[in-house]
């Protein structure tokens, strides 16, 4: 492949809270123009790593580069290229979807007309037009994901970092989101998603990384990481956990 441009480069990221270390020197390289999947067991540090990678959580140590720009040293340049969908963070909840997009677009310095056009297009595409007059606080979990995705796309980023974008989303909307993301990658964009759905990751991503215990257990092209078996099997092998429910819970039957 030779020397290829990296959309996102994490180097030696470390983070500890109060008494425990959550991320131990995590390093990751996301090639430009790829669809990159991040998988790992619960509590492996995925959300913490993605928060650090997007400037929402300051790492104790390590660097984050977005297309070569150090995110924590030059956040303005790096974040302009970045679109983010964090897991479970609030939006301006009292505003309607269109009002949220308008507010953010103007905050990004887009003109009123551009904001209006893009907001309309995104609302139509993501099927949020029916909820035109509902404040975001009244959205369902899936609708929240969709409006979150719209905010990530609004300013035309080069790299999307999405934490669990398919969680709680219905199959039709999931197909829409997949199409949008696929098209984004086909036109030169780069996407990083974290997900628990292995089948989905296998279908979408060319590159994957398995995070276990705050470290990268394996990373690379999908074929290499999963080897001969499925990603599911590779995941269970790498995370070092066997299916432990072989006995017990005998009372759980009627």
């Amino acid at each position: 492949m030779g020397l290829m441009e990296l959309a996102l480069e994490l180097d030696e990221l470390r983070m500890s809270f109060a008494d425990r270390t959550v991320v131990h020197g995590l390093g990751l390289q996301v090639p430009s123009g790829t669809f990159f999947g991040l998988v790992g067991p619960n509590g492996a540090g995925k959300t913490t790593s993605l928060s650090m990678a997007t400037g929402l959580l300051r790492p104790d140590a390590g660097t984050v580069r977005v297309f070569g720009v150090d995110l924590w040293r030059d956040p303005a340049r790096a974040k302009a290229m970045l679109g983010v969908l964090p897991d479970d963070l609030a939006l301006p909840e009292r505003l309607t979807g269109r009002e949220v997009l308008t507010y953010l677009g103007l905050l990004y310095g887009l003109t009123e007309q551009v904001v209006a056009e893009r907001a309309q297009e995104l609302l139509v595409l993501l099927g949020l037009l029916e909820a035109e007059r509902t404040p975001v606080a009244g959205y369902s979990a899936g609708m929240r994901k969709k409006i979150g995705l719209a905010t990530a796309l609004l300013h035309g980023p080069r790299l999307l970092v999405l934490d669990e974008p398919f969680e709680a989303v219905d199959p039709i909307s999931a197909a829409t989101i997949r199409t949008i993301l696929r098209r984004f990658v086909d036109t030169g964009g780069s996407v990083v998603v974290s997900s628990h759905e292995m089948a989905l990751v296998e279908r979408l991503c060319e590159h994957v990384a398995v995070i276990v215990d705050g470290r990268v257990a394996a990373a690379g092209p999908l074929q290499e990481v999963r080897g001969a078996g499925s990603l599911d099997e590779a995941f269970i092998r790498l995370s070092g956990a066997e299916n432990t429910v072989t006995e017990g819970l005998s009372w759980l039957s009627s």
């Binding site: 303005a76 974040k79 983010v84 963070l89 609030a90 939006l91 909840e93 953010l104």
Partner: peptide, 18 residues
């Protein structure tokens, strides 16, 4: 009262002042 919606401001450097 805005809670974690602060992340939107953080994602847009320079927006803190506004």
């Amino acid at each position: 009262t805005d809670g974690t919606a602060l992340w939107l401001t953080l994602m847009r450097p320079g927006a803190e002042r506004a």
